[in-house]
Design a protein around this nucleic acid. Structure first.
Length: 470
DNA sequence: GCTGGCTGCCC
DNA sequence: ATTCTGC
DNA sequence: GCAGAATGGGCAGCCAGC
């Protein structure tokens, strides 16, 4: 329970460089309300605006210098180095993006920070903690899932007995140091300071600097593309592009500032793959989506076994109009708007066949029950007749206990399938039949390529699918 | 003691 | 996290 | 342009129930 006052009071931070209370905290009733940084009290991290093309990003920087930094796929970490009362023993606290204290979960990071920072100086750093495999030369970045499997408590014991993943923190900013706030300083200065011995002594595989390229002048576009490719090879999600100079490059807590732009690789034309999936079921939407099907369960089609294997649910990317059309198409009628408030299913349930008090069964294109060739651990409220194809885009695939795509073909993952992270609907694919949908084998190949960083396997020529040609 | 559901948090 | 909608 | 709503995948932890 951290008092997250930065969120409650998103003040304009009239930060001064006098933030340092020379004599100690006694006279600081302020809880962050005044915008005064306090080591040990988390401030809301600065956020980035998302853009989906190099062109749009370059446009926002308008020729000014910026940093094209790797966007690591881990957890945001605001690292505080707190001085003890006597100025002696230091303590490290680590806060999540939402200002939760996650020090216990990453006590190894905390210790590494202690070793990497000079005595007698308090500090606040910003960075990303990632699961890594240190047996590789430069520590190999591991998927987010590895990081998520870390135990939450201080005990560090994992129920399954598997050892927790090693982690490394990639630092990219310094907000405060030695009693001085740095948030008003230009990013270039903050970064340079962070990279000086006065602030930190990095330790490979434990405490590192976020990788980034300074880009300015001609050839910016080529430089950004190159940075993006490097980031992808490294196993990152894309780029964080940050304005380097001037007051606009200050650190603005809790703001989704224009001076930070994120470019995720799965949005960039020519890099992202999309999938052609089949809607096989749905639930009833809540709130403003009451009366519509939402979300919708999607599946890949395996012609070898004639099965539809679920890959994800999707609810993003539909306009209200599409919802109306979709619902009418499958239900064959307008659904009665549900009550505003949804209630707990209680213990009722009893498998997905009952459909409690629903009237019409096989109306429209609904099926009376889940067909045996729909392979999923989901229990949809209604099952669709698999009859169309939608183009879906997402980030990577994860091993799933719920979605059974390619289940049985994945080495070392008995009983698990593949699921798509961050799925969103792009458009219908009226020119494709369900038999032409993306197959589990294709998805398995994409999965293998994504973390099988072992082999760069450049091409492996992949079937297209996608195309949002306009 | 193991399992399933639910909560809370990460992205 | 993402997307669309409404102010 | 921004806030709000409705949800995406997935994990650890905790508690109820068998």
């Amino acid at each position: 329970m951290c008092p997250n006052l930065d969120i409650v009071v998103p003040k304009l931070l009239e930060e001064r460089s006098w933030a340092a209370p020379a004599g100690g905290g006694a006279a600081l009733p302020d809880l962050g309300l005044g915008g005064v940084l306090r080591v040990g009290m988390p401030l809301s991290p600065m956020l980035a605006k998302m853009q989906s093309s190099y062109g749009a990003m370059l446009e926002t920087f308008k020729g000014r210098a910026f940093l094209a930094e790797h966007k690591y796929d881990g957890m945001r970490a605001q690292v505080h180095v707190v001085l003890g009362a006597a100025g002696g023993r230091r303590e490290v606290r680590i806060f999540s993006r939402n200002s939760e204290d996650i020090t216990d979960r990453f006590s190894d990071v905390a210790e590494a920070i202690l070793e990497s920072t000079p005595a007698g100086k308090d500090a606040i750093f910003d960075g990303e903690v990632c699961a890594v495999d240190r047996s590789k030369a430069p520590a190999q970045l591991l998927p987010f899932q590895s990081l998520a499997r870390r135990p939450k408590g201080p005990t560090g014991r994992s129920a399954t007995g598997e050892r927790a993943a090693e982690v490394c923190v990639y630092l990219f900013d310094c907000l405060y140091h030695g009693g001085e706030s740095m948030v008003k300083a230009p990013y270039r200065a903050r970064r340079e300071f962070l990279r000086s011995a006065a602030a930190l002594s990095p330790r490979p595989g434990f405490v590192e600097y976020a990788e980034g390229d300074v880009i300015e002048g001609d050839g910016a576009e080529e430089a950004v593309e190159a940075a993006m490719l490097r980031s992808i090879e490294r196993g990152c999600e894309g780029l964080m592009c940050k304005l380097l100079d001037g007051p606009a490059s200050a650190y603005e807590p809790s703001k989704r500032s224009d001076s930070w732009v994120k470019l995720k690789k799965d949005y960039i034309d020519g890099i992202a793959d999309s999938l052609d999936l089949v809607p096989i079921g749905a639930w009833y939407g809540n709130g403003r989506k009451a009366g519509w099907y939402s979300p919708v369960l999607l599946a890949a089609y395996d012609p070898e076994t004639d099965t539809f294997q679920s890959v994800c649910r999707v609810m993003s990317g539909f306009t209200d109009e599409m919802y109306t059309k979709l619902t009418l198409f499958y239900a064959g009628k307008v659904l009665a708007g549900k009550q505003k408030k949804r209630r707990k299913p209680e213990a009722a349930e009893g498998a997905g066949s009952g459909d409690s008090g629903d009237k019409g069964e096989p109306t429209g294109r609904l099926l009376p029950r889940k067909p045996p060739n729909y392979i999923t651990n989901e229990s949809c409220r209604v099952w669709f007749d698999a009859c169309e194809v939608w183009t879906i885009r997402g980030a990577e695939f994860s091993l799933s206990p719920t979605h059974m795509c390619a289940q049985g073909r994945i080495a070392c993952a008995a009983g698990r399938g593949l699921a798509l992270r961050f799925p969103r609907f792009l458009h219908e694919r009226p020119d494709k039949t369900t038999a032409e949908a993306t197959t589990p084998a294709q998805i398995l190949e994409l999965y293998t390529k994504q973390h099988g960083a072992e082999k760069p396997a450049a091409a492996a020529g992949y079937d297209d699918d996608d195309d949002d040609i306009l």
